Simulated assay, not measured.
Amino acid sequence: MSIFDEIDRIMRRWQRFFEDLEKEIDEEFRRLASQQYQSPRRPRFYYYGFEITMGPDGKPVVREFGNVRGRKQGGIEVVDEIEPLTDVVEDDGKIRVVAEMPGVEKEDIKVRLSNDNRTLIISASGKDRKYYKEIPLPAEVIPDKTKASYRNGVLTVELEKKDKGRGGFEIKVE
């Protein structure tokens, strides 16, 4: 079997998966639309997306985002908070987290670090949208050196690693 046959097999499997997911989402949307009650907890919109990248081991990695989530017992649920699409970029000594969060004001956004400084927690609550995501960081960071900016619906958080470079203590060889 060639690599192209394997890629074709994987793509057919993903196509079936997304076709099934599309049917489930469509059925859930129709069910929600047919409900006659108006609840303040009912989301005003439905937002779902995914990103497929190649992992370091050569296998595809799928990351989902939005406010439509699969349930463990089957089916889907629509929640108030949107999980934003995020990227974590690690450079020498720094970590940059970029999150797409359109529809909120800068004042609506809260960014904080967990007690162990290894998880970034992003939340926002605007007029029409709510966002929430906990992002595990690849290294411990220095909280005092963290900077965040929000422009054109994109939140960028720059963090400095606690242990820059390869870490450890260099020992001189005699």
Rank of each mutant, 00 (worst) to 15 (best):
Leu21Gln: 04
Asp144His: 01
Lys147Leu: 09
Ile121His: 00
Tyr48Gly: 07
Asp87Phe: 04
Gly75Ile: 03
Gly70Thr: 11
Ala33Asn: 13
Tyr132Trp: 06
Glu90Tyr: 00
Ser125Gln: 12
Phe17Ala: 11
Val97Asp: 07
Asp26Ile: 10
Asp116Gln: 05
Ile142Met: 13
Glu64Ile: 03
Arg30His: 10
Gly168Cys: 14
Pro102Cys: 13
Pro138Asn: 10
Ile121Ala: 08
Leu155Phe: 00
Gly55Trp: 00
Glu19Ala: 15
Val154Ser: 04
Glu6Ala: 14
Phe50Lys: 14
Thr53Ala: 14
Asn117Ala: 09
Asp80Ile: 10
Gly66Trp: 00
Val89Ser: 07
Pro143Gly: 08
Leu113Tyr: 00
Pro143Ala: 04
Ile171Trp: 01
Glu107Met: 08
Lys59Ala: 14
Arg44Leu: 15
Pro60Phe: 05
Thr146Asp: 02
Lys59Gly: 08
Leu21Ser: 10
Glu19Gly: 08
Ile82Arg: 03
Glu28Gln: 03
Arg151Ile: 12
Ile52Val: 13
Phe169Cys: 09
Glu64Leu: 08
Val62Glu: 09
Met101Leu: 09
Val157Ser: 06
Lys164Val: 10
Asp57His: 01
Gly70Trp: 02
Leu32Asn: 04
Val68His: 03
Leu21Gly: 07
Lys147Ala: 10
Lys106Cys: 07
Glu51Leu: 12
Glu77Gln: 04
Glu90Ala: 13
Leu21Ala: 13
Gly49Ser: 06
Thr53Asn: 14
Asp92His: 05
Gly126Lys: 02
Ile135Tyr: 03
Arg69Ile: 15
Asp87Ser: 15
Leu155Met: 02
Ala124Gly: 12
Phe18Lys: 14
Lys164Asp: 03
Gly58Ile: 06
Asp8Thr: 15
Val104Thr: 07
Glu28Ala: 12
Glu81Thr: 11
Glu51Gly: 11
Val97Arg: 00
Gly153Glu: 05
Glu51Phe: 01
Gly153Met: 02
Ile25Pro: 06
Glu22Val: 06
Leu159Ser: 07
Met101Glu: 03
Ile122His: 06
Glu77Ile: 14
Arg12Met: 14
Arg71His: 02
Ile171Ala: 09
Arg63Met: 13
Pro60Lys: 05
Ser2Tyr: 01
Glu174Gln: 14
Glu27Phe: 07
Arg129Phe: 09
Glu160Arg: 11
Val104Asn: 02
Val104Lys: 06
Asp108His: 04
Arg12Asp: 11
Val62Leu: 15
Gln35Phe: 02
Asp87Thr: 12
Lys162Tyr: 07
Val79Cys: 06
Ala139Pro: 01
Gly70Tyr: 00
Asp20Trp: 07
Ile3Thr: 11
Val141Glu: 07
Asn117Arg: 05
Asp20Phe: 10
Lys161Leu: 05
Asp57Ser: 08
Asp5Asn: 12
Ser149Trp: 01
Val104Ile: 14
Val78Leu: 04
Gly55Ile: 11
Gly103Ala: 11
Val141Leu: 01
Glu160Asn: 07
Arg118Glu: 15
Phe17Ser: 10
Lys110Asn: 06
Ala99Pro: 14
Asp163Phe: 08
Lys94Trp: 13
Ala139Arg: 05
Val173Ala: 12
Ile142Arg: 10
Pro102Lys: 05
Asp26Glu: 11
Val173Tyr: 12
Pro136Arg: 07
Tyr37Gly: 15
